[in-house]
Design a binder for these strands. Structure first.
Lengths: 195, 195
DNA sequence: TAAAAAAGAATGAACATTCATTTTTGTGTT
DNA sequence: AACACAAAAATGAATGTTCATTCTTTTTTA
């Protein structure tokens, strides 16, 4: 029996429980015993799948990040025009934050706290490469402002995180109508002005 | 001897230590004993100033938030034009995040985790009222897009939080030049298009 | 039937909070 | 000014709990 035979279902249940509990209480206020209970598993079993608590949360982060970017780039292909590509990616990201807000909130918490190891954080960033490539192309073609990727991200993508958090806290702001509105703001802030 | 005579210096030292340690390790990974040590105080003394750990962090949040908004609105006055008022407030906020990034990071962590009581969170929001009033005026005068305050905040103010976090993690993106650039993005995304 | 997987109980460390004392402070008296 | 002293403030050590991780045993699997 090799490692591969350990139940992938149990592993997934552990990841899922981690996300839900960390969202509600934060990493350090979430005991391993609770994670185990929610995943219907003994606490000791967690250590068959993960080295320790830190490893569990690091791996959870990387998996959620991968899922997020996979979803974001699913319907994008590199032959699209810059404008069309951006719209498709942006709207997929908005969808993700709306429909899969448990996962999205988890990422927001990871990105704003010292809860994740620096190494895993950097690992997570790599998944965004297709978007950075698209922006590079857009800048070359003169369609996207020649400013740093950080500024582009700050004004075009990150606002969605704030909207998601507001949504989660009771504001109703991410329905169909507002998405279109928000998309226009996003595009306006990164496209070159003389278009 | 009344409560008032307890040293305000000690209380301030405790708040400061809380901010620094929570920034580095997160709320639950920051023991009271460490906070006490950094503030040069016995652990038991903390309980003369705060009810318990949760109360300490709630009060810290409210104080930092008050400091933040006091700074943001310091040079603003209600007789300014909407455009001028917005620019002044926006740049003060940018300054705060740049120069007082310990405090700003602490707020970011509070805003993206379950670490603060809901009541204190709401208390903190109230301080933003002058900005919401300015936006209301701007909308009435047709200068600012008639969209929700959440959207306005998401696209005009919140991006600064992302830029600050990136800065903290090593990117050099918030110098004078970029601030002006970022401000133009912010203003573009909330002003009405036919200006 | 042997190896892997899983379990529950045990272990020991870390921590928030309280307790019993000591130190400091401000006031009134000589 | 020096002192006495009560109330407040501060302390370090103790308490009891919670929790990550490990250990030993049982169950499952091939």
């Amino acid at each position: 029996m090799a490692i591969l035979q350990k139940s992938i279902d149990k592993r997934n249940a552990l990841i899922k429980a981690t996300i839900e509990l960390v969202n509600n209480a934060g990493f350090h206020a979430t005991p391993m015993s609770k994670i185990a209970k929610m995943a219907n598993v003994s606490p000791a079993t967690i250590y068959l799948y993960f080295e320790n608590k830190q490893d569990l949360v690091n791996k959870t982060y990387i998996e959620v990040k991968a899922e997020y970017t996979k979803y974001a780039f699913e319907s994008y292909d590199e032959n699209m025009s810059v404008e069309q590509g951006f719209e498709i990616i942006w709207k997929r990201i908005a969808d993700f934050k709306l429909n899969d807000s448990e996962n999205a909130m988890f990422l927001a918490q990871c990105d704003n706290t010292p809860m994740i190891d620096e190494l895993s954080r950097q690992e997570g960033i790599k998944h965004l490469q297709p978007l950075l490539d698209l922006w590079a192309r857009g800048k070359k073609e003169g369609i996207i402002k020649p400013i740093s990727d950080y500024l582009l991200y700050a004004y075009a993508i990150n606002p969605l995180s704030f909207l998601m958090m507001s949504q989660k806290r009771g504001a109703i702001i991410l329905d169909r109508k507002h998405i279109e509105e928000a998309y226009q703001s996003a595009w306006n802030s990164i496209k070159t002005c003389d278009q």
